[in-house]
Write a protein that binds this DNA or RNA. Structure first.
Length: 472
DNA sequence: TCTGGGGTCCTAGGACCC
DNA sequence: TCTGGGGTCCTAGGACCC
């Protein structure tokens, strides 16, 4: 049996925990660059605002209804997520962190242990709410796909009290009838259109199609599994998240620039900055990478710009794996050079690290460096592929004094870019973030200031929280 | 004027190997 | 006239997810 716990309007809920005056009011959170709506409170959804709506298109509507707008604050959301996941790991036998706001719980055998899964799920919800302030819903079912489905219904139907347990075939059949096929986990826009054309409208209809049909029209084996899962036959198990963190198979970092860039050095500086961040995440995960992809993109919305909007180049590192930012950057520079088209305005860039593995597993050694007894045909400097000490120092400094305290020089934009009134020099690729909330939980300067008597109470609460949620 | 970012899995074709 | 079979790796791209 699988449980799926999903936080309600997660980013909005995170903001509300620290600014409760926005409870009951329409609130939205914008994507990077203040581009699109990526989280909406129930009140905002009721106004007809859609997920992914470009901000500039709905700006008037937002103003008209006095909707509170936040820029996204991932430092805050990431830290709140960690707290939610930490609590789940205290109360569930095994937890798979599925995304920043969702986790699968392995509930095999829990029925016999705690008697009633429905009551158990209600306790878990209350626990998360009490410890983090975040509201959630829980779906429980024999497969992950059905647990997602149950969760969705629990979110929509307030009468269920945030929990739906599909414990009988009758309930499962009922649940399948409630959900339009386009809202099934694994059915996106393309498949939904195909299914509609074939007369498959609800999840119940999809559960009835033949395996051969699913294979043919829904992406091969993926479609076959999807249908089986809807029928209650599990095709995917739970992959527990070790030590409460996600370990990924690829790591990327990309940004849309605040303005189009036409100078090679500016784009290279952006790529260097993104690569630095990706490599930092790589090291935090304890891995090295041996595949590097760089891409640079034009503005896909500009009417005069023709496709392809993006060009990418991938390189399997000839030196094997590394987690060294400077080594990776050497290759990234080559790739940017390969992609660069003179006279083009670029709007976005990104890097991806693939082929991740822990140190010592798949390292390619330099033949000559590894066997110094062999005479080298030509004397050449030793190839530097790792400087773990240097990288560890870099990470330690940046963790202690703030991200970007020590940077690779390539990632520092050339002088001459305009400073803001405060004298701060934003990089040329910097985007907008007009309405960012303070990093209440991760920056000392952003800690809430309260008066003395409230302060004493707060200090007690804070100590309590620190006790409950030790930092990793 | 203004349109996100970070992931997963799968497929397919070409190069290359035995 | 007819031109193998089975495998890996690499790269690119499509579809999906939150």
């Amino acid at each position: 049996m699988f449980g799926l716990l999903d936080c309600n309007n997660f980013y909005v809920s995170c903001e509300r925990v620290f600014q409760p005056r926005y409870e009951g009011r329409p609130v939205v959170v914008l994507s990077n660059n203040d581009g699109n709506l990526i989280s909406r409170s129930a009140e905002a959804k009721a106004l007809g605002l859609k997920m992914g709506d470009p901000y500039f298109q709905v700006k008037d509507l937002l103003q008209q209804h006095n909707v509170k707008v936040f820029s996204s604050n991932y430092a805050l959301y990431g830290d709140m997520s960690r707290r939610v996941m930490y609590h789940l790991q205290q109360v569930a036998p095994a937890v798979e962190i599925y995304s920043i706001d969702e986790a699968f719980l392995d509930l095999a055998g829990m029925e016999t242990y705690c008697g009633n899964l429905d009551a158990y799920a209600r306790k878990v919800r209350e626990g998360v709410k009490a410890r983090t302030g975040i509201p959630t819903c829980v779906g429980i079912a024999p497969t992950k796909t059905l647990a997602k489905l149950a969760n969705r219904i629990a979110k929509k139907d307030a009468g269920l009290g945030g929990v739906l347990y599909l414990n009988t075939p009758e309930r499962r059949a009922w649940a399948l009838r409630q959900v339009p096929v386009g809202n099934v986990w694994g059915v996106g826009r393309q498949y939904a259109a195909k299914l509609a054309a074939a007369g498959v409208d609800s999840a119940a209809d999809l559960a009835r199609v033949s395996e051969a049909w699913a294979r043919k029209h829904l992406g091969g084996v993926v479609g076959a599994r999807l249908v089986q899962e809807l029928q209650g036959r599990p095709c995917a198990g739970l992959h527990p998240s070790e030590d409460g963190t996600l370990s990924r198979q690829s790591i990327s970092c990309s940004r849309t620039f605040g303005k189009p860039l036409t100078a090679f050095d500016d784009v290279l500086a952006a790529v260097a900055a993104f690569l630095s961040r990706a490599a930092e995440k790589l090291r935090a995960q304890g891995d090295m990478a041996h595949v590097l992809t760089v891409y640079i993109s034009k503005n896909r919305f500009a009417p005069q710009v023709l496709p392809p909007f993006s060009r990418s180049a991938t390189l399997t590192l000839p030196i094997g794996s590394t987690a060294d930012t400077t080594v990776l950057l050497g290759y990234a520079r080559l790739l940017v050079g390969r992609l660069w088209e003179k006279g083009t305005a670029y709007q976005k860039a990104g890097v991806v690290l693939d082929g991740l593995e822990p140190p010592g597993t798949g390292q390619q050694l330099d033949l000559f460096a590894a066997a110094p007894a062999l005479a080298k045909p030509v004397e050449q400097p030793a190839l530097v592929t790792q400087r773990p000490g240097l990288m560890a120092s870099l990470d330690a400094l940046n963790q202690r004094f703030g991200r970007g305290t020590v940077r690779i020089a390539t990632a520092v934009p050339a002088p001459g870019h305009s400073a803001t009134t405060s004298g701060h020099h934003p990089p040329p690729w910097a985007g907008k973030a007009q309405w960012r909330s303070p990093c209440f939980t991760t920056r000392l300067e952003d800690l809430m200031v309260v008066n003395y008597s409230v302060g004493v109470i707060m200090a007690v609460v804070l100590c309590h929280c620190i006790y409950l949620v030790p930092r990793q």
